[in-house]
Simulated assay, not measured.
Amino acid sequence: MREINVPICEKAALTIEEAAEYSNIGQNRLSELLKQPRCTFVLYVGKKKLVKRREFDQFISQSIQI
């Protein structure tokens, strides 16, 4: 089966590694943010945590400090 590479800016959900590359925020800090109870951009797929890109963009644009 052929692997399809979709650009990060077109994905709806990102892995922590992709979100770190996309935002220039460290993976450890992103993991901490995703653990917060009111995190609006976390998406659980089984035990795996993904980052909802649009909600993450909104979070970043509204934040002064992370």
Rank of each mutant, 00 (worst) to 15 (best):
R2Y: 12
R2C: 09
R2E: 15
R2N: 14
R2H: 09
E3W: 13
I4K: 13
N5I: 15
N5Q: 12
V6E: 02
V6H: 08
V6T: 15
I8W: 07
I8K: 09
A12L: 09
A12P: 10
A12S: 14
A12R: 04
L14N: 07
L14E: 04
L14T: 15
L14K: 03
T15I: 08
E17P: 06
E18R: 08
E18P: 14
E18H: 12
A19H: 04
A19N: 05
A19M: 08
E21Y: 06
Y22S: 09
Y22F: 15
S23R: 02
S23E: 01
S23C: 05
S23Q: 00
S23P: 12
N24K: 04
I25F: 14
G26Y: 02
G26W: 03
Q27N: 07
Q27A: 12
N28P: 04
R29N: 06
L30F: 11
S31F: 08
E32M: 00
E32A: 11
E32K: 03
L33H: 04
L33K: 00
L33Y: 03
L34G: 06
L34D: 01
Q36M: 04
Q36V: 07
P37L: 00
P37W: 01
R38I: 11
C39G: 06
C39Y: 04
T40N: 02
T40V: 09
V42T: 10
V42W: 02
V42H: 04
V42M: 00
L43F: 14
L43P: 03
V45L: 02
V45M: 00
G46K: 01
G46Y: 01
G46S: 02
K48Q: 06
K48S: 10
K48G: 05
K49T: 13
V51P: 05
V51W: 01
R53M: 04
R53C: 11
R53T: 10
R53F: 11
E55D: 07
E55P: 04
E55S: 15
E55R: 13
F56Q: 01
D57Q: 08
D57W: 05
D57F: 14
D57N: 15
Q58H: 14
Q58Y: 10
F59H: 03
I60H: 05
I60M: 12
I60D: 04
S61A: 11
S61L: 05
Q62F: 09
S63C: 11
S63W: 06
I64C: 12
Q65Y: 12
I66P: 07
I66K: 14
